[in-house]
Design a protein around this nucleic acid. Structure first.
Lengths: 202, 202, 202, 202
DNA sequence: GATGAATGAGCTTTCATTCAT
DNA sequence: CATGAATGAAAGCTCATTCAT
């Protein structure tokens, strides 16, 4: 029933990001999104099951691109430390490039009800899995401290980045975000680096 | 008009925590909270300006107690490292003690609209300021690395703790939370400790 | 939740009969009924579960009065033949007195969906049971032919009266209805009278 | 514009009967009927003016066949009493043979709005006229009581049969319908038979 | 202070119908 | 003839807030 492809599908997704960023989730009526997309209200329902589905699809779509892009950037990189650096950098850079998207993912998407939150988390798993795999590989390669619990390390990494971005959004994007990647990476590395590798560095 | 004190004031706050935790934010009508509190719908408006005000007051009230309690625990503690350990420990322990409150602060409160988010952030500033002061003092005392930006360090600390708690809540409190304080503290300390102090440790 | 009594309850029922008779069921918006009743839209939902519930309650209310009234008229009547005469007469006379109600029961109420039809039938059972008891008693008393199946006889009686009323409604009440009671009764009696009683009559 | 003939015309009519019987009138969207008929939504509008027109045409078509078939069966029958017996029998037997059609004519068709009801009644006139002509002829031939009003007699006949069928449909076709024709006919005849003929019978 | 009946604004979704291809 | 993607009007119901008692 709901077609997940087509020119209008993309138009509606983009309209939704814009309208929700501008008006907030609770004031983004379907009719407003339709108008912005240049389609009739009913057309929305040819492409999406309901209003919730717009939100989830929006996140799936953008998050998918996001993860794919980062994976692409990581290809060929051998240093585990650098991998983490690239991930943090891309995360901040991508959201800095699209203020509206940042607003939606950091604030509006979290206003939705819990059933959406769970679906969002499902989508997020792809990204969290990516972080996990970087950590695991680093531990195997002897780059990262084997003693550290992967889940905890991932929570610190994702929680830190997320908090940094949210603070930036709530401060109205008044400062540059990407430059915060380097010190954040440096800080995290001090906690993650394996004792042996630390020794070598001296 | 809205009195911020009284027996019924407290009853309503506690009813709100319970009702929101049980039913979710979007299904917590004012009438339901009134019923749980054992007062009439209209009575709510003698103590709170509107529904938003219940939420914000709830957070102010609980967060205030939370911060006061941690401040109290920190009194007399001289080691900066230990201060941070206590803060993390208290944070996790307090929320583990009250599942309902954890549900409300980690998930439900964030579903409200942005104007509430900003007011909640205002309340949160007291707690974030506490973290900042621990960091600053630690830097002054030579316990923490002076080179690290205080804001970033606070974002990492708060973001990490918050992510750890949210994961625990979304996993239905299926594991113990407080034991996660120690490894988290250890991890963070590796990134924060001053080079000089690190040297001494060897 | 839905209060089945009160001044406004009656006002809404009466408004519904009027509005539905005038506009037809599908063009009788809840807001229109509320306006006619002189209450707010939301007030409707303090007294009725939903729009369907107005219809069913309307029928319950009116049918209840209808059956009670006929039962009252039958009190003290001993002749089974006369009982049937009174029932037919009352049925036609009552509906003739209230054109709007006749319109609603004969046409509009049957436009509703099947779930309503079944509930309406449930309410109707009280009336059909009354007819059944007249038949049974007549058979016991030797007034009516024992050989005739009660259910079939009731279907003929009710079906005939109903068809007569519906024809009158669809002909815009352009002729008098009550006078049709006598010939209808006479006709039905010829089929129902017991052979023995018939013999006596000669 | 709307062609009343063609292969697809019949396909759509039959699809409508099936879909309405299965899903109920209010859940029988044009698109569903189109799908069942194996044509595009738009094609419906090449054969029918609008949705109402499908319903009316359906009834015209089926009712026409129905009346033709009964007329055919009545050919050559000379006894007026037997004519009525055949009519009742055919009426019940035809609907018993097609449960879907019975569902549609007895319940679903009556859920449509009043303008349809009037058009349906127009179509019904052919059948009612047939009943009328049997009555009139019977009165002329001295078989039926001349004193009885033809319209009333027809209302009793049609009302009774209709009620019998509706009861059967609402009881989910749980018993056999055709066997009810004989007692119904016998009952009606007792009221209709002319006094003179009755005398002869003794 | 306390009550709770009443208010009425606000929005998602369906589906008959059209028309460019 | 046939298609089916697109249209857009239309309405039931909820719930925060008020105010007469």
């Amino acid at each position: 029933m709901a077609k997940k492809r087509g020119l209008k599908y993309d138009k509606i997704i983009d309209a939704a990001v814009k309208v929700i960023a501008q008006n907030g989730y609770h004031h983004s009526q379907v009719s407003k999104i339709a108008k912005e997309a240049g389609v009739a209200d009913g057309t929305i329902y040819l492409y999406f099951k309901n209003k919730e589905d717009i939100l989830i699809s929006l996140f799936e779509e953008k998050m998918g691109q996001f993860v794919d892009y980062i994976k692409h950037k990581l290809e060929g990189v051998t240093s585990d430390e650098e991998k983490l650096a690239i991930l943090i950098n891309m995360h901040l850079a991508q959201l800095e490039k699209d203020h509206n998207l940042a607003l939606v993912t950091q604030l509006e998407l979290r206003q939705s009800n819990i059933s959406i939150r769970f679906k969002v988390n499902e989508v997020l798993k792809g990204y969290l899995g990516l972080i996990d795999s970087i950590i695991e590989q680093g531990k195997e390669n002897g780059s990262f401290d084997e003693a550290i619990d992967t889940r905890m390390m991932r929570q610190v990494i994702f929680g830190s980045i997320d908090e940094v971005v949210t603070n930036w959004v709530m401060k109205d994007h008044r400062y540059e975000l990407a430059p915060l990647a380097e010190p954040l990476h440096a800080f995290l590395m001090k906690g993650m680096i394996s004792p042996k590798r630390l020794e070598e560095k001296r």
